[in-house]
Amino acid sequence: MADNSGAAAGGAIYGFGLFGAWVYFWQQADGFWDHVVGILEGVVWPAIMVYDLFSYLN
C-alpha cells in the first residue's frame, strides 16, 4: 500500500498559499477587473514567484 500522506500535506500547504495570495491580491485591487485579475493571479502565484526569482537571478 502506498503512503500518500506527503501528497496530502503538500496540498494543504498549497491551499494555505492560495488563500494567502488571494488575500494579498484582493487587498491590492482597486476596481472590479483588478479583483478578477487578483483571483487569477492567486491561482498561478507559484509560477509568478518562480519567474520573478529567475528574473532576479539573471
Rank of each mutant, 00 (worst) to 15 (best):
M1P: 04
A2R: 11
A2S: 09
D3A: 07
N4V: 05
N4F: 14
N4W: 10
S5M: 09
S5N: 12
G6A: 12
G6K: 05
A7F: 14
A7D: 09
A7W: 10
A7G: 12
A7M: 13
A8R: 12
A9V: 14
A9Y: 08
A9N: 07
G10F: 09
G10H: 03
G11W: 03
G11N: 09
G11H: 02
A12E: 12
A12M: 12
A12R: 13
I13T: 12
I13W: 10
Y14K: 07
Y14G: 01
G15L: 15
G15H: 05
F16E: 09
G17S: 07
G17W: 01
L18Q: 04
L18I: 00
L18E: 01
L18H: 07
F19H: 02
G20S: 11
G20K: 02
G20V: 01
A21N: 03
A21C: 06
W22A: 04
W22P: 00
V23I: 14
V23S: 08
V23A: 13
V23E: 11
V23G: 04
Y24D: 06
Y24N: 04
Y24R: 05
Y24C: 04
F25C: 02
F25N: 10
W26D: 13
W26K: 13
Q27L: 10
Q27G: 01
A29T: 00
A29D: 02
A29W: 04
D30V: 11
D30G: 13
G31I: 02
G31R: 12
F32K: 07
F32T: 13
F32R: 09
F32V: 12
F32Y: 14
W33I: 11
D34P: 08
D34N: 14
H35M: 07
H35S: 10
H35G: 08
V36T: 13
V37T: 06
G38Y: 04
G38P: 04
I39P: 00
I39M: 13
I39N: 04
L40Y: 07
L40N: 05
E41F: 11
E41G: 01
V43H: 04
V43L: 15
V43K: 03
V44Y: 08
V44L: 10
W45R: 01
W45Q: 07
W45M: 08
P46W: 06
P46A: 05
P46E: 06
P46T: 06
I48E: 02
I48C: 00
I48Y: 03
M49N: 09
M49K: 10
V50K: 07
V50D: 02
Y51N: 06
Y51H: 11
Y51D: 02
Y51G: 06
Y51W: 14
D52I: 10
L53H: 11
L53N: 09
L53Q: 12
F54I: 15
S55F: 11
Y56T: 02
L57Q: 14
